[in-house]
């Protein structure tokens, strides 16, 4: 550790016991935080203090803590994942804050994401979208040769850019309309670009966008807040591609 200076921060955290509880903000103090703490480690420290004081710890989603699983999901000072470009909450570090800062922490807020408890929301609506078309129906047989289907590099790269989505739902949380267009657009694009996915492209885009609406997600109005919120930097060009696929599907 380069220095031992510590920070004291005021946290204003959304606490909600269950989906039906109205919920409210509670204020906590985070003490002895260094710039090397990740945001989640800072919350761990606060929770340890809460447990020692015989209080309920703040409940939040997390898993890999290396920015690839898509579990962590917090709105920090109004921005999904804290607003640092291409960063998940677990990869956000306390060096982005300074001693004495007040930090608002809220759950993802969207009609399609009911709150389970505190900062945890139910994101299974995203799974429903995937279940309705985010796959290819092929017999895979035995283990195939990795290069059996040749794909031009530029196409493979573009599909990979779309496939970077970790399904965290920041795009929905960032969207003022609570729309899931970036999430759905990324999956539709990834599969539509590749030869294995082309065959079912029109069925896929119709079904996935239908499920999107049924799950209670809003409609896109091109604010592009989703792109700013995405920790994987997924571009709204994939929404444009999905719109294109949708139009094409009308004639298929």
């Amino acid at each position: 550790m380069s220095d031992h200076k510590t920070m004291t921060l005021t946290l204003i955290v959304w606490r909600q016991k269950s989906a039906n509880d109205p919920g409210k903000f509670e204020t906590y103090t985070a003490k002895n935080i260094t710039e090397h703490h990740s945001f989640l480690e800072m919350l761990d420290c606060v929770n340890e203090d809460l447990i020692h004081a015989d209080k309920d710890p703040i409940v939040f989603d997390h898993d890999c803590r290396e920015g690839i699983c898509g579990m962590c999901s917090q709105i920090i000072n109004g921005a999904a994942h804290g607003g640092q470009e291409r960063t998940t909450v677990c990869q956000l570090h306390m060096r982005k804050f300074k001693d004495g800062d007040t930090i608002y922490i809220e759950p993802w807020r969207a009609r399609a994401f009911p709150i389970i408890r505190d900062l945890i929301v139910d994101r299974s609506a995203l799974d429903k979208i995937i279940q309705s078309g985010g796959y290819t129906s092929c017999h895979t047989g035995g283990v195939a040769d990795g290069n059996a289907i040749l794909i031009p590099k530029a196409v493979a790269d573009e599909a990979m850019d779309a496939a970077q989505c970790i399904g965290c739902g920041a795009c929905v949380a960032g969207c003022p309309n609570g729309a899931a267009m970036l999430f759905t657009g990324a999956k539709v694009s990834q599969l539509a670009l590749l030869p294995q996915g082309k065959g079912e492209a029109s069925m896929r885009v119709k079904n996935m966008t239908k499920t999107m609406t049924e799950c209670g997600f809003g409609n896109c109005t091109n604010h592009y807040e989703c792109m700013a919120a995405c920790p994987k930097g997924i571009n709204v060009k994939f929404i444009a591609r999905m719109n294109r696929e949708f139009l094409k599907a009308q004639f298929a």
Binding site: I12, F25, I75, N77, G78, A79, G83, Y104, E106, R109, A110, R111, G174, C175, P176, N177, G178, A179, G216, F217, G218, N219, T221, N222, H223, Y224, E225, M227, A228, A229
Partner: peptide
């Protein structure tokens, strides 16, 4: 009307990054 219900509760801190006065 549909989109106004998309986010039932506003965030305590408003932080827009890409949306503009025109788009909103």
């Amino acid at each position: 009307i549909e989109n106004r219900g998309g986010r039932p509760q506003e965030y305590a801190v408003k932080s827009t990054q890409k949306a503009t006065f025109a788009s909103e």
